[in-house]
Each structure stands twice: as C-alpha cells, then as structure tokens.
Design a binder for these strands. Structure first.
Lengths: 80, 80
DNA sequence: ACAACATATACGGTGTAGCGTATACTTCAA
DNA sequence: TTGAAGTATACGCTACACCGTATATGTTGT
C-alpha cells in the first residue's frame, strides 16, 4: 500500500480508511496512540495545524509511515 | 527519489539535504514557502511540534511530497 | 421509537509554533 | 584576520493543538 498525501484532507482520509479497514473506533485508535478521540477526529477531518508528532503517533498505531518523494516520480499512478 | 520519514529528525534531514541539493539557503527556502528562516531551521532540526501545514509548505517548495505506506511494504529498501 | 455505539463539538487550561525583529554563532572565501 | 553569508537562538506576541471532561449529533440494529 502506498498513497499520495499531498494535503491534510488527503492524509486525514487515508488515516480514516486504514482505521476502518482495521475495524477500530476513533476512541480505540486514540487510546493506543495516547490521544483523545477528539484529536483523532480533528486529524481525520484534515486539520492543517495538526502537530507532526501527533500525526506520526497515529500513523504508527495503524502500522503506517510517511515516505518523502519527488513530486515527479510518477511510477505509482500515472495513467491510472 | 523516495525516502522513509519515520520521525521528525529524519524528515528534517531529508528536507535539509534536498534544500542543499537545490543550492538554496534557509532564508531562500523560507521566503518561497512563506515562512521565516528560523522556522525552516526548526523543521530541519526535527522539531516534533511542527505544524503539518508548515511542513507541507516546505515540501511543496522543494518539489517534494508525502506518501503514506504500510510499514511492512519493504520493497524500497530491504537489503540495502 | 429506543438503545447503544460512534463521531463531532464545546469549554477552560497549558504548552508551544510561527510571527517580526534582532543577535550570536558558524562557515567559508579573500 | 577580516568580512560576508548562512544558521541557530532569543524576546514578546497571537493563535491554536491537545489536554480532561462533557455533551450534542450521527449511525446502526432491534
């Protein structure tokens, strides 16, 4: 699995999808991430002021991680 | 180009490397990103409380972007 | 309708980013 | 050594994340 995450909304959507894929509630995800349910809600809804730290905690809890790539790599989605 | 970015330090290092690759000063990068030189400095040094918004602005200015992937994908770096 | 769970939102509080501005420290070339 | 460019750090300020706690709203099953 590898998805583009160019803005807070996209990031929030990807997190929400993965959380549901794992059948977790926001409450459960918040708990294992050391956050509040309200904070998870904010992230999933694309709050742009989310702290990097908080985001990484959630990604980690979901078994996800960031990668940084050149915008023009293009080998993952061109034509698709 | 695609690099793992599992924590703020790694993210900062990748940004710094790309900035230097493009022969930009922190001041220049800050300017085109709508930030201060001091803010770029903080990001490159791995401040964990950096805002997502700010991070995305810098990445965008450098022609970089985030991807979100499963931790176990393993097809980008296993074995060196 | 009702219950039970899930998600969004609210309030007061603490911490810190990022701002403008300014300055110390560090490279590096002459 | 001197000077210039680059980087790290500082102060006062405003804004807002995230906290604990609580509640309103949404969703699902009976």
């Amino acid at each position: 699995m590898r998805e583009l995450a160019r803005d807070p909304k996209q990031i929030g959507n990807l997190i929400r999808e993965e959380r549901k894929r794992k059948a977790l509630s926001q409450e459960a995800l918040a708990s294992i991430s050391g956050l509040r349910q309200a904070s998870v809600s904010a992230i999933e809804n694309g709050s742009p002021n989310t702290k990097l730290q908080t985001l990484l905690a959630v990604l980690s809890s979901l078994g996800l991680e960031f990668q940084i790539s050149s915008r023009s790599t293009g080998d993952w989605n061109i034509g698709g």
